[in-house]
């Protein structure tokens, strides 16, 4: 039987970008508001899972030629390195700092090193969740 997925695939092509935008918003709004690397990563991975559900594994792997196991490993590496960087300045492991800068268009902005740690957490969560779900779905 010929499958007809027109509505699901058309809705998914739009909804994926909305979910990705919302995931990035959750990731960037952490540290002062509800949000952060973990739930931002979960939302980003739900967008990837929606792509896998609407299309198939081979098409998505051709469109996103990324090995998600390497993404998880790179995320953990970034998190550990951002913690080790504090040792170079004589602080304790995983110490974080922040400062205020005057950026063009944005005005006075708070830049903090927690963003690097949270980026590693988000990458690790995306890699682990997508890898687990794709490996579970492999039957036969």
């Amino acid at each position: 039987m010929r499958e007809n997925d027109v509505i699901l695939q058309t809705v998914s092509k739009v909804a994926v970008f909305i979910i990705l935008t919302f995931g990035m918003y959750l990731f960037l709004s952490g540290h002062h508001n509800p949000g952060g690397g973990f739930i931002g990563g979960l939302t980003l991975s739900s967008a990837v899972i929606l792509l896998y559900i609407a299309f198939d594994v081979e098409s998505v792997n051709k469109g996103i030629p990324v090995d998600f196991k390497l993404v998880a490993a790179a995320g953990v590496l970034i998190s550990v390195l951002s913690g080790t960087g504090a040792l170079l300045f004589g602080a304790d492991f995983l110490s974080q700092s922040f400062a205020y800068f005057d950026l063009p268009l944005l005005g006075k902005t708070e830049l903090t090193t927690v963003v690097l740690f949270e980026a590693g957490v988000a990458l690790a969560v995306v890699g682990v969740v997508v890898t687990i779900l794709i490996n579970i779905s492999e039957d036969v």
């Binding site: 909804a15 979910i19 919302f22 929606l50 779900l133 779905s137 039957d139």
Partner: peptide, 24 residues
């Protein structure tokens, strides 16, 4: 978002018996 994705996954399971298929 979670209700949308879970409803789609359940519907595809009822319709096809498989949620994430290898190749269309």
């Amino acid at each position: 978002i979670l209700a949308f994705i879970s409803t789609i996954a359940f519907s595809k399971y009822i319709e096809r018996g498989v949620i994430i298929d290898r190749k269309r």
